Simulated scan of single mutants.
Amino acid sequence: MAVALLASGACWGGDVKEQLSSETQAAEAALRQVCAGVASALEPVDRKHFEEAQQKWLAFRDAEASFQAGLTSMGGSAYSTDYQAERLAMTRERIKLLKKVLESVK
């Protein structure tokens, strides 16, 4: 999985945690932006359902990232890096999906 590569530093030079933090902040901003676009393109009843689904997805993402990080780090010192890397990967996938949704509702 990508988490192992990210945690090992194989994908980036320099400080992996710093890079992950920077990439995560950018992805979170992009996710908020695309969510706002989707929400504004929907009818009120659909917007409510989307917002509920998005909140549940965020909870799932965090729980799944924690689960995956626990598997890859086996509870060791790499847990936080693995968690952030998995969370980032899932966020990027969600952004791709929501961009497709946005195109379909425009």
Rank of each mutant, 00 (worst) to 15 (best):
T81M: 03
R61S: 07
Q54F: 11
A39Y: 02
A39M: 10
A29T: 10
L20M: 07
L20H: 02
T24Q: 10
R87S: 10
A89T: 06
E43C: 12
Q84T: 10
A59E: 11
L42K: 02
A36I: 00
K56H: 07
C11F: 09
R92D: 02
D46E: 13
D82Q: 07
Q68A: 11
T91M: 14
L58D: 07
K48F: 08
R87M: 14
E103F: 09
V34T: 13
A63L: 13
E43G: 10
V38Y: 00
G14R: 07
V16A: 04
K48S: 09
A30I: 09
S66Q: 12
A69Y: 02
T81C: 09
C11S: 02
W12C: 09
K96N: 12
Q25S: 15
W12Q: 03
S8Y: 04
K99D: 00
M90L: 15
A59P: 04
A2I: 06
L31I: 05
D62C: 04
Q55C: 11
A63P: 05
E86S: 12
R92M: 08
R61Q: 12
P44G: 08
Q19P: 04
K17E: 10
M90P: 00
F50C: 03
Q68G: 00
K56E: 07
L102R: 15
E18N: 10
A89P: 02
V105F: 01
T91A: 14
R87H: 12
K99V: 02
L6I: 07
E43L: 15
E103W: 09
V38L: 10
E28G: 08
V105K: 09
T81P: 01
S77G: 14
E43R: 15
L102Q: 13
E18M: 14
E28W: 12
A39G: 07
S8K: 12
Q54I: 07
G9Y: 02
Y79R: 03
E103R: 15
A65W: 01
W57L: 05
L88R: 01
R94L: 06
S8E: 07
E103I: 05
A26I: 10
S66I: 08
K96Y: 00
G37L: 04
T81F: 00
A29I: 11
S104M: 12
M1A: 04
A2H: 00
E103D: 12
K100D: 09
L102T: 00
Q84W: 01
G75Y: 02
K96D: 09
R32P: 09
A30K: 07
L58S: 07
S40C: 11
M74Y: 10
T81A: 07
F50M: 11
G76P: 04
A26Q: 15
A30E: 14
I95C: 10
W57H: 04
G9R: 02
T81Q: 01
E86A: 14
M90R: 09
L31E: 08
K17Y: 06
S8H: 04
E28I: 13
E28N: 15
L102G: 06
A59Y: 01
K100T: 06
Q25M: 15
G70F: 04
S22N: 09
T81V: 14
K106S: 11
V101W: 11
A10I: 05
L71W: 13
Y83P: 01
A85N: 05
E86G: 05
E52Y: 07
A89F: 05
D62E: 11
L97H: 13
